[in-house]
Design a protein around this nucleic acid. Structure first.
Lengths: 366, 366
DNA sequence: TTGAAAGCGCTAACAA
DNA sequence: TTGTTAGCGCTTTCAA
């Protein structure tokens, strides 16, 4: 019907293959450049041309290829997200905040779950170096600083969640780890506890180190000396918590009166999952929580309020951490430079939420 | 030192810009094709050449660009994942299975959270049409079939989780919805319940419709007639569950004896979150669970076992659903055709887990 | 307002 | 075993 418009060897695409910008251009009788202008809503195109192009697009059921586009503009609209454990409700909530905010910015999220494993995290990082994401969010890294830096130096704009600022990053959003631990410890000390254990956490992770350091510092300030075996690192999961607690608590029913016992009267857990694991283990060992053992968690996951006993814990604004991380990175992507000339450090203050898993220590017994 | 090898105008990249395959080729004194062969471990390259190329790569700190590569081979190694609610531990566990398995297959996951919202899901789907993912996993779609089909016809290989097979998809992995509901209902009926409500769920979602239909069918078979207001759809979240329960349960303390009461003696919830919401609401309304109200959940999230009362629920093998979904899609990607000539239908049988949130109905009162 | 042409960084026939 | 050449599908100067 319609004769070839140009003397090109262009042909229309077979029914099963996708139309390209050239097909559209040919059909509309314009150049690919013009089609590109229409697709991207450049204002310069005349109304009639625009209409012709749009018709051709509709006719061919044309979808611009992100692949071609990405290569041409050398951006992908995609962010890498490295998260420690998606099944931990605290992280899931952060991801929710990230996802939702990224969507409004037109950014896509490539998800990587490290399973709280440092080696795996390292693998993922090196994989990401070639994936050309526009940016990277690392949430609760288990890696030491010197393994994080190379990636940023390769030029991927990175935001860290719950980490201290790194010179090569574009910023950090965190809750004040020190304040969180201090609040929890103050609470336990006020309740009269002096035999306090710290359980759970990956030793290579900066969060862990900071929390532990603060734990030690607070103990020292309160004149409490902590035996080394009261510090039990473990995977920050329910099972990790159980395992750690098992090392500390009396087995079977040989529960001693608190003043003579060797086990702690209180446990500060790395996070809520660990705390819950410890509660379960304690109960199975025949200890009542909080009467014989107080337990404090960290994060305030939704589950914390629903348990029996409900969990005393340190609340972090999970969703907001995620949202702000995206805002940071989106701002950077727009400006192509650090807004303040140096990495942003955004810090929130956590809140201690006192519930039913902590109680005054009872030293004299009935 | 070394003279220009070719008469090209190639120059080495400035320090701050990334090296390309051409830079490497030039430095190694070979063609880009050869560099490509080395990068992709093609066996044909001679040892000495390979070494020269690798040296150049190291020298320039060269990272191959996935962008260029993707365009050339027209694949991205990326799968879209549409999930209803990442903060629901059941879905989080599915994502974990997907993530982990995808990683072993060298596939990357683009995560999209629909927030259990049909409109949002539709938006995401159309967005994905141009993103050129190699495949798509839709988990717990809230969209009716006719809105799902267009995407698959555009040619994106799709696997559905907890959905019936669609002709245009490459397959489906699900737990038997009908069996799950039947098991739960059998349990309630055996306990003597005849006033059973079904609460929670998005009406446009196929899972919801199937579960509800089975609920109705089982009631009919048991000779139970259910008033329409016993069926309360709601967002499948904790709050959704609370809200739905509020519609059903007596307010304040006007708890009537069961035989005269208008409210149900048992609630079958769309999922565990809804069930937990209902438990909370019931308790706040002054009802004891399970004595005055039995509640059954669905999914068996980790939390279900830890609550008081612990939750009777229908277990789904969440992680495995995710793993199998990836296997399905990975197989297809390798073969570039349906392994069995038609969409695969992989079905698991759920298990009823009886815990403490259900009890025999007490008709005579003290 | 539009088009020609060059190029983004890589791969893959094909030829040598 | 290696190089030449022609794309992959799009964007973007620059000139008309």
């Amino acid at each position: 019907m319609v004769k070839k418009i140009n003397a090109t060897h262009e042909r229309l695409p077979a029914a099963d293959e996708a139309a390209t910008i050239d097909n559209v251009a040919q059909m509309a009788g314009v150049s690919p450049a013009t089609v590109s202008r229409v697709i991207n809503n450049r204002p310069v195109v005349s109304e009639t041309t625009r209409r012709r192009v749009l018709e051709a697009i509709a006719h061919l059921n044309y979808q611009p290829s992100a692949l071609g586009r990405n290569l041409a503009i050398r951006r992908t609209g995609t962010l890498g997200l490295i998260i420690a454990d998606i099944t931990n409700p605290f992280y899931a909530e952060i991801v929710r905040g990230i996802e939702e905010t990224a969507f409004t910015h037109g950014l896509n999220i490539l998800l990587y779950d490290t399973l709280e494993d440092a080696e795996r995290e390292a693998q993922i990082l090196s994989l990401l170096e070639e994936r050309q994401t526009d940016g990277l969010i690392i949430c609760a890294s288990c890696l030491p600083e010197q393994r994080l830096l190379p990636l940023m130096q390769v030029g991927i704009p990175t935001v860290l969640i719950n980490h201290l600022p790194l010179s090569a990053s574009i910023g950090t959003v965190e809750t004040d780890q020190e304040a969180g631990i201090r609040a929890a410890m103050q609470h336990l000390v006020d309740l009269g506890h002096r035999r306090i254990a710290y359980i759970g956490g990956i030793t290579t992770a900066q969060v862990y180190q900071r929390r532990l350091a603060t734990f030690r510092a607070t103990c020292a300030e309160a004149g409490i000396s902590i035996p080394e075996n009261y510090i039990v690192p473990a995977k920050p999961t329910l099972d990790g918590g159980r395992e750690a607690a098992r090392h500390l608590l009396p087995t079977g029913s040989k529960v001693e009166p608190p003043e003579r016992a060797s086990y702690p009267t209180a446990i500060l857990a790395y996070n809520d999952l660990v705390a819950i694991g410890a509660i379960i283990e304690a109960q199975e060992a025949g200890l009542t929580v909080p009467e014989q053992l107080s337990i404090v968690g960290y994060d305030n996951i939704p589950l914390a309020a629903l348990l029996h006993p409900s969990l005393t814990t340190v609340q972090q604004p999970a969703r907001i951490l995620g949202e702000q991380a995206i805002h940071l990175i989106a701002t950077y992507l727009q400006l192509q430079k650090l807004p303040e000339g140096r990495p942003t450090f955004m810090r929130f203050t956590p809140t201690l939420i006192v519930r039913a898993s902590t109680a005054p220590v009872v030293l004299s017994s009935s």
